Amino acid sequence: MSELVARTGRHQQRYDAGCRLIAGCIPFRFRCSDGNNCDNSKKIVEVLMINSTSGPGLLFPKGGWENDETVEEAAAREALEEAGVRGELMHFLGHYHFKSKTLQDDFSPEGRCRAAMFALLVKEELASWPEQSRRVRTWVTIPEAALCCRHSWLLEALENGFNKWCDAGMVPTMGYTK
């Protein structure tokens, strides 16, 4: 198997109406509340967050959507590159708008971004991944994620996208393997 490498640069970056298009996901899994047999206990949803490379707080994997991929492929790629996980995109959580000081360029001088976010059921955690030297991944409960989320738009995706989807009973109860 060849070594996984993160994409770099913005030469294939997508834009729309002055917004840089971003794709990302909220990776999740289930943990048994008693730590043993999930058949006899309540399953707890945990989400995977990664450290920010530009300051305190945690993030969900996300990054530029490029011309040679679908938005779903971009979200899955970002989860693999930044968090070292693979899984199944289960639900589109919505579009979220934000401004980025670090993502300003000729096509979006104000740093405007529009992120398409998805729920990703994690099926595999890789031992090594492209950004492992820069990223630490952390599994947390949804309330913990809300407390340590670095950006308000990611918190909105968690609360108004992911939580609403969970509360609607749409979250699958499939297993998780490591």
Score class of each variant (00 low, 15 high):
4 L>W: 06
5 V>F: 02
9 G>R: 09
9 G>D: 09
11 H>R: 11
14 R>T: 05
15 Y>M: 08
17 A>T: 13
18 G>I: 09
19 C>I: 05
23 A>S: 13
26 I>M: 00
27 P>M: 08
29 R>F: 10
32 C>T: 10
32 C>V: 09
34 D>M: 12
35 G>M: 07
37 N>P: 04
38 C>K: 08
42 K>V: 14
42 K>M: 14
42 K>N: 12
44 I>M: 11
46 E>R: 11
48 L>N: 05
48 L>W: 03
50 I>N: 01
50 I>G: 01
52 S>D: 15
53 T>V: 13
56 P>T: 13
57 G>T: 05
58 L>Y: 05
59 L>S: 02
60 F>C: 02
64 G>A: 14
64 G>D: 11
67 N>F: 13
69 E>Q: 14
69 E>K: 12
71 V>T: 05
75 A>N: 01
78 E>Y: 02
80 L>I: 11
85 V>D: 08
87 G>K: 08
87 G>S: 11
88 E>R: 12
89 L>T: 04
96 Y>K: 01
96 Y>R: 01
100 S>N: 04
110 E>P: 04
112 R>G: 06
113 C>F: 06
114 R>H: 04
115 A>W: 04
119 A>C: 07
123 K>V: 07
124 E>Y: 15
125 E>Q: 15
125 E>Y: 11
131 E>N: 10
133 S>F: 05
134 R>Y: 07
135 R>P: 00
135 R>S: 06
137 R>G: 03
138 T>L: 07
140 V>F: 03
141 T>C: 12
144 E>A: 11
149 C>S: 11
151 H>V: 03
153 W>A: 00
156 E>F: 05
158 L>H: 10
158 L>M: 14
160 N>L: 09
161 G>Q: 03
163 N>C: 14
165 W>P: 02
165 W>M: 06
166 C>P: 00
166 C>H: 11
171 V>H: 07
173 T>G: 04
174 M>Y: 14
175 G>S: 15
176 Y>P: 07
177 T>C: 10
178 K>P: 02
